[in-house]
Amino acid sequence: MNDILQNLVILQDLDEMISELNNAEIITQQEEMGFEINGLEKLTEAREELIKKIPPEVFNHYNRVRTRYGRAIAPVRENICLGCFIKIPTQISSREMGNQVLRNCENCGRYLYWV
């Protein structure tokens, strides 16, 4: 798998986790279930470290698309971008082939990964 793509998926997951930590209802639910939630600053630090592994132009695009759509990365199934449901004009026939290179959806701009 392309290293930048892998780091982008982790970044998106991490951003979702941080976003949940800012949702009081979710925090209350988790605490009521018995889980400790007290290390937000560690996640923020981990995010900063992760960003250093992503080229600035890619990170800037990630931020722009995330601001616009909520998520900057979308899965592809049967050559359909599951972010905007547009067919990807490509000959990619396997997950391995699709995830070797960093690609954007030509329609919505989301980074794509093949599932």
Partner: peptide
């Protein structure tokens, strides 16, 4: 990273 928030 989830464990950094607190043990599960």
């Amino acid at each position: 990273k989830r464990e950094q928030l607190g043990t599960t």
